[in-house]
């Protein structure tokens, strides 16, 4: 059986908020390394991979591998009943029909108990090889979100170019064009506010802004985001948490 306790409900609430507009139904795979998820969007253009590691739980017990087939919209309805600071306990049997969720406030005088019906989901998994990326950019997640939102008002696509000059996001649309260039600018005192660029080779790729804006809903998970790029392969965007991560992969647009 599974028994997993999070000190703060906000962790799972933020993860679900981050991915629910990309995927609807997905398996939460529970095993002795924690709770993992890999799911593609309906169009098979983007993929989300999530891992909440056992170290992030105040209590974690999972005797066998259990797949929890969850509709994320339904899960979000239940999670709305949890306050951010509540302790959350997830429980499921070995072949569960339902996931039990218990929310307890810090004063220990309120216990909320919910059951979420589970579904059988036959999920496709992709094998993602370890990749040496040509360019890796670490920057404040809020800044990346702002750039994606601003450019998405002008165009459907963004060209991302990483060179030794910096990383440039540019787009062209009906009303005009726009570009933002970030130069390497490490912040010694507050590393989460700096921008670092590791460049093995120049990279130039084009991506759909609709998806990038969607990924930025994970900005609440981390102050920083890591963007990894190589020519002719999908982009990797990672939001690292204290004990886990949410990663998004996005196939490029080609033939500009």
């Amino acid at each position: 059986m599974l028994e997993a306790r999070l000190e703060q409900s906000s962790v799972l609430k933020k993860v679900v908020d981050a991915i629910k507009d990309l995927v609807q139904d997905c398996n939460f795979d529970c095993n002795d390394s924690g709770i993992q998820l890999q799911a593609m969007d309906n169009s098979h253009v983007a993929l989300v991979a999530m891992h909440l590691k056992t170290e992030g739980f105040a209590l974690y017990r999972c005797d066998r591998n259990i797949a929890l087939g969850i509709n994320l919209v339904s899960l979000q309805k239940v999670l709305r009943a949890a306050q951010n600071e509540d302790v959350m306990t997830l429980k499921a049997e070995d072949s569960p029909d339902a996931l039990s969720l218990v929310f307890e406030n810090s004063e220990n005088d309120r216990i909320s108990e919910y059951d979420l019906k589970l579904m059988d989901i036959d999920q496709e998994h992709l094998g993602i090889p370890e990749t040496e990326y040509g360019a890796t950019v670490k920057m404040p997640s809020a800044e990346f979100q702002r750039i994606c939102r601003d450019l998405s008002l002008l165009s459907e696509s963004v060209a991302i170019e990483a060179t030794k000059e910096g990383i440039k996001f540019s787009c062209t649309g009906d009303i005009g064009k726009g570009a933002v260039t970030l130069r390497q600018n490490p912040n010694v005192e507050k590393p989460e506010l700096g921008t670092t660029i590791e460049l093995q080779e120049p990279v130039a790729l084009t991506f759909s802004l609709k998806y990038l804006v969607n990924f930025c809903k994970a900005s609440g998970l981390s102050n920083t985001v890591t963007i990894s790029l190589s020519n002719e392969v999908p982009l990797l965007i990672e939001y690292e948490m204290e004990h886990g991560y949410v990663r998004f992969y996005l196939a490029p647009k080609i033939g500009d």
Binding site: L126, A251, K253, I254, G255
Partner: peptide, 14 residues
């Protein structure tokens, strides 16, 4: 107009 590629062009189904 650039064409949106599929993830299956890059990664194999397990």
């Amino acid at each position: 107009t650039p064409i949106q590629n599929d993830l299956s062009e890059y990664y194999a189904l397990l």
